[in-house]
Design a binder for these strands. Structure first.
Lengths: 282, 282
DNA sequence: GGAAAAATGGAATAAAAATTCTAAAGATAT
DNA sequence: ATATCTTTAGAATTTTTATTCCATTTTTCC
């Protein structure tokens, strides 16, 4: 009874930690080759995650079929299923919560409860912030600040979805005593609003997919006139990148059709304060 | 000569960083689908590491054969070879992900300050999000949605620091097909902009300490004319509370003199989507 | 505006990998 | 000691996955 391959206490685990626990608990009751595999798997988890049945079998000193038996003895469909556990673990380390959010969304059925709606957006925001910590390089960030600090006036460019970020920058820079002009493109006067900028100024341009043409065009125009351009965008393939002297990457997570702006705001605030501090030093 | 698929300067890279650099340098000379794939690969590296040709192709919106062409155009034997690069990166990253950050922070001297600035704002944002989960009660949130969903037109009120939130709401509501008007108070025309509102409409007012008088005044005026008011504010003592039919509490954390807006944004997005969904039900 | 070259989509094919099956070896219990 | 049950090795098979090829479309250059 207690030796059943599947009892209540050791149901097939769906995450690495559970699997680890299960393997350890079965250590003494496993047959030779399977025990050997268990030991190998726990000490070379990345190899199990990436390897092929044949490759792992050779390194572990067993037959390929043993891997399949091993996986099945734990309750998985086959080796491929077991491998998923090891892969998921690596994924988590480098979080792409996309899937987690998807699960959250699906679980609510068609009737999305309002509370989970709020949860979802809060999660997306938190995820974005976490990602930003990795994607923004301190050196680039410093260079961006350097560029902005040297500018006489900072021209702020951001349309549609990211307009709020640009608008906030206008507020923050103003508070900090840094001269900044928000190009709000009112009455289609964008080009004229930017017309007074010179090489001694700088442009802070913000744009995410789908890139608003106005922002890209104005940034390109500024670059052509040798005005330093600092860009905040979401991919190296953004049209802003070609115009920018320095660019910072922010990939915001989305929930439903809407993307967070949290990381962009945090970055914008840090840029503003950093710029003001740098100026004080000069 | 310079257009050779393999010149001295862009030899096939054997690590992720090199690959990234190569892709960026070729950004402008790549054909459409390959560029699309390059962008996808850089923004979903884990998927490239773990996925199959067919799976990745589908997510990236290209044909499987394009993946192979892509890999070969970079000088690899085939997709499998390219995939090795992405896998190697995950392996390396795995052990010292936290450590790398620490080392980076300690070693870089002058970049330390700016990096910690960014950390600080990101932290403040994360804290705000955490707090909001507790401070916003689901029932209140539902009532707010109910009120907004019944409105014919939603008037958005937010000045100074929170203007970006109101501006974003205008964008989101527009996208969702909900009629909304942003009271931007341009040329001091706020009272006139709000003049057309009736009891069948609603006002969404946002204000935090120090409460901007305009917002409080306009919200009070609206309440006097029996226009339903939903408020997002930071305390029970806010002047908005007396005018509001429903109010939601959001206490943003600050870093230095600047307060986060992340929680407000998440709440605003959730309100917008919730309202649109509620309307669809009616 | 038309010829040549490059890029693309999609099916066909080849390669690789996982899984299954069976005979043989090894335990276990009576 | 031997009959039975479990475990294992290795080859055979099936399934999955990557790659190739070619007709069609798109771009480029004259």
């Amino acid at each position: 009874m207690g030796a059943d391959s599947e009892s209540i206490t050791d149901a097939t685990p769906e995450d690495y930690e559970g699997l680890r626990t299960l393997l350890l608990s079965r250590r003494d009751t496993m047959p030779k080759r399977l025990k050997q595999l268990a030991a190998f798997a726990l000490s070379h988890p990345e190899e199990v995650a990436f390897g092929t049945v044949a490759g792992i079998a050779e390194h572990a000193g067993v037959q390929p079929s043993t891997l399949v038996r091993f996986a099945k003895s734990l309750g998985y469909d086959g080796f491929s299923h077991l491998q998923q556990i090891f892969r998921a673990r690596l994924r988590e380390r480098f979080p792409d919560y996309r899937e987690r959010l998807r699960v959250l969304r699906d679980s609510e059925g068609s009737h999305v409860q309002s509370a989970s709606l709020l949860e979802g957006f809060a999660d997306a925001a938190a995820v974005s912030l976490g990602r930003m910590r990795e994607s923004v390089r301190p050196e680039e960030f410093s260079r961006a600040i350097e560029t902005l600090a040297k500018a006489d006036t900072i021209y702020l460019l951001g349309a549609r979805r990211v307009f709020p970020v640009a608008a906030y920058c206008a507020y923050a820079f103003g508070k900090l005593g840094v001269r900044a002009i928000l190009i709000d493109h009112i009455a289609q006067l964008g080009p004229e609003q930017l017309g007074t900028a010179t090489e001694r100024d700088a442009v802070l341009a913000i744009s995410f997919t789908p890139y608003s043409p106005v922002t890209a065009d104005l940034a390109a125009a500024a670059a052509r006139r040798d005005i330093p351009v600092v860009a905040i965008t979401d991919s190296a393939f953004s049209p802003l990148v070609t115009s920018a002297d320095v660019w910072l990457e922010v990939a915001e997570a989305d929930f439903g059709a809407f993307r967070s702006l949290s990381a962009s705001f945090a970055l914008a605030m840090a840029l503003a304060v950093g710029t003001a501090e740098r100026r004080a030093e000069i």
